[in-house]
Nucleic acid binder design. Structure first.
Ligand SMILES: [Mn+2]
Ligand SMILES: [Mn+2]
Ligand SMILES: [Zn+2]
Ligand SMILES: [Zn+2]
Lengths: 124, 124
DNA sequence: TCCTTATTGTAACATTGTTACAATAATACG
DNA sequence: CGTATTATTGTAACAATGTTACAATAAGGA
């Protein structure tokens, strides 16, 4: 039942650390780490989510992006948005918290906020 | 070059009208209208989007949902969120507008805001 | 070092969506 | 109305993304 520290987990974690505030798709990891199998990468990413190390966000074209968590423990909480620049294609995890009001008697369990546009460095 | 009013377009439009404020997935339409081909349904939905009749939103599990537009013309503008109830599975287009602030020199081109949780009728 | 079993690789499959091309049916026009 | 034009549709084939079952491998405790 004990988790094992494997080469693949180390390598994938390092990928994620290196990207800082930006997000990664699983196929980004695949091409950076071709020695590991696609299925393995999916499994490890899921286990990192379960451990509160990363969070997954769905883009406005249905792709999955993975981001480092900052202060997540057992439960993820991410009421912020993610911004994809349509020019440089970088995806940033934005710290601005969004307070959404849902109607009375609605209960929020999960949010997925995505914005696409032009980032500051691509704007002239 | 002229658009033609076909059986399939009429039937799909009626599906969408009937759902009111709720969203549909393309496979919902497929099963309601088995006489039409999958590809045709995708094509018609895309043409409705181009005409400003419906808008497409991506759920937090990567599925595409289609919603009636209220006042969209050439350009879509939808700074509202969509709420999926994890119990009854209905997806509602919510009218509350969300004002997001992006950092200086960022430009918003498109938003996709999704919330899942429990709706009022499923909550006791 | 050896054993147990957590982890990985492989193959096969599912879902969602797209493309190319031939067949069909809306519409315009005589 | 009948016919021609071509917008639209159906079909098959493909691509991208993700999941599952099961056999092979390797992490780490004894
Ligand atoms: Mn984030
Ligand atoms: Mn909407
Ligand atoms: Zn950019
Ligand atoms: Zn509900």
């Amino acid at each position: 039942m004990n988790k094992r520290k494997t080469q693949s987990k180390k390598a994938i974690l390092e990928c994620i650390q290196r990207t800082g505030n930006y997000g990664l798709k699983s196929d980004n990891i695949e091409s950076e780490l071709p020695q590991f199998n696609r299925v393995t990468i999916y499994r490890i990413l899921q286990s990192f989510i379960d451990d509160g190390i990363i969070h997954k966000v769905i883009s406005d074209d249905g792709k999955s992006y993975y981001f480092k968590c900052k202060n997540c423990g057992e439960k993820h909480f991410h009421n912020h948005y993610h911004f994809k620049c349509n020019i440089c294609e970088k995806v940033e995890c934005m710290d601005n918290n969004i307070d959404v009001e849902v109607p009375k008697d609605y209960k929020i369990e999960h949010v997925n906020f995505w914005i696409s546009g032009i980032c500051n460095s691509c704007k002239k």
